[in-house]
Simulated scan of single mutants.
Amino acid sequence: MHSNDRGGHVRQDAAGPELDRLMVSAAEGDREAFAEVYDVTAAPVMGLVRRILRDTAQSEEVTQEVLLEVWRTSGRFRPERGSAMTWIMTLAHRRAVDRVRSAQASQDREHRAATLSEDTPFDEVAEQVETRMEWQRVRSCVRGLTDIQRETVVLAYYGGHTYKEIAQSLSLPLGTVKTRLRDGLIRLRRCLGGKA
């Protein structure tokens, strides 16, 4: 079969080696070669994307995205690894699946937001009590630290000071401050029920 029709364009039934050659030319910046790649591949890409998305408008949009990606990334095509059509259809499949996943994630987020916004009874008193109990537990654990550990933990986490600032404030070497803070945090973690 001859690979060109009367207008000089690649026929769809001759997309194999001729399409590979056109892709290589497109990668070198040949816009006419890419126009032919577009003509040959637009319908098959649209067909694949449409089967996955089942929505004409989205399928058209994704098809355009895929063909734009083919133009932008044509330099990555390697004929020795497979045919141009396989490469393009793989891009199309991935892009369509990504769109489905994105739409599903969006629906899931909307569903969660709707579920959260429903009038669920909320017990503010219980939350306040729970918060107060957590604070009391933390305070109790902080009181259980040695004076040196407590001082560095309070300066770092309640005062927002850096290691260097704590070292200067307490007139201690930086390494000593780091060791005291680490030891204090290990004790706090144990006290609060975490792993050491």
Rank of each mutant, 00 (worst) to 15 (best):
H2R: 15
N4I: 15
R6G: 11
G7N: 13
G7V: 10
G7K: 12
H9A: 15
V10E: 05
R11P: 04
Q12S: 11
Q12G: 10
D13G: 08
R21K: 15
L22A: 13
M23F: 09
V24C: 06
A27Y: 04
A27I: 03
E28H: 15
R31E: 15
E36I: 13
Y38V: 11
Y38A: 11
D39W: 14
D39C: 14
V40Q: 01
A42L: 11
G47W: 02
R50K: 14
R50D: 11
R54P: 02
A57V: 06
A57G: 10
Q58D: 14
Q58V: 05
E60N: 05
V62W: 04
T63G: 05
T63C: 03
L67K: 02
E69H: 05
E69M: 07
R72T: 11
T73Q: 05
S74P: 00
R76W: 02
F77V: 02
G82K: 00
S83H: 00
W87C: 02
M89P: 00
A92T: 07
H93G: 07
R94M: 11
V97D: 04
R99K: 14
V100C: 03
A103T: 14
R109W: 05
R109Q: 06
A113D: 14
A113P: 12
A114Q: 10
F122T: 07
F122L: 06
E124S: 11
E127H: 09
E130T: 12
E134V: 13
R137T: 08
R137G: 03
R137S: 08
R139P: 03
D147L: 10
I148Q: 14
V153N: 00
L155A: 04
A156L: 02
Y157S: 09
Y157T: 02
G160P: 06
H161P: 07
T162V: 04
T162N: 04
Y163E: 04
Q168W: 09
S169L: 15
L170H: 09
S171M: 08
L172Q: 03
P173D: 10
T179P: 00
T179Q: 01
R180I: 01
L181W: 02
G184M: 07
L185Q: 13
I186M: 09
R187N: 13
L188M: 05
R189P: 06
C191T: 01
L192M: 13
G193K: 00
K195T: 15
K195W: 15
A196E: 12
